[in-house]
Simulated assay, not measured.
Amino acid sequence: MKTLFTMEECAEQIGRSSRTIQRYLKNGTLERVIKKTKKGRERYITVASVARYIRNESEVKANE
């Protein structure tokens, strides 16, 4: 089972731009994991934080 999304996968899942994903990471809305690879550092977003974001967004829309 997948536990991490790339920036592109995350943007596709929640329907936002990668710049918006970066803002969400910076303000703590989404959780990031940084892994060191041969290419350098790569950022990933936890699936749990994406699921939490989607759940919160759907609750907000349901309350409108």
Rank of each mutant, 00 (worst) to 15 (best):
I34W: 06
N56T: 05
E8M: 05
I14G: 00
Y44M: 00
S18D: 13
Q13L: 06
E8G: 13
G15M: 00
M1V: 11
Y44C: 05
R16Q: 15
E12I: 08
L4F: 08
R23L: 04
E64P: 00
E12N: 10
L4Q: 07
G40Y: 14
R41A: 08
E59I: 13
T3W: 13
V33C: 01
A62S: 14
E59V: 07
N63K: 12
N27G: 00
R32T: 05
K36W: 09
A48H: 10
R55N: 11
R23I: 06
R43K: 12
G40V: 14
V33T: 15
E57W: 03
V47W: 00
E12C: 03
Y44H: 04
G15W: 04
L30Q: 01
T20E: 10
E64W: 08
E59S: 12
F5W: 03
S18E: 15
M1Y: 06
T37V: 06
V47F: 09
G15A: 06
R52L: 09
R43M: 11
T6A: 02
S18A: 12
V47M: 07
T29W: 02
Q22C: 09
R43W: 04
A48R: 11
E8H: 08
S49E: 09
K36H: 11
Y24A: 03
T20N: 11
I54Q: 05
Y24V: 06
E8V: 04
R19C: 05
L30W: 01
T29C: 00
S17A: 07
L25W: 02
I14N: 07
R23P: 03
T6H: 06
V47D: 06
I45R: 02
G15V: 07
E8P: 01
E57V: 02
S49R: 08
C10A: 13
K35N: 14
I54Y: 02
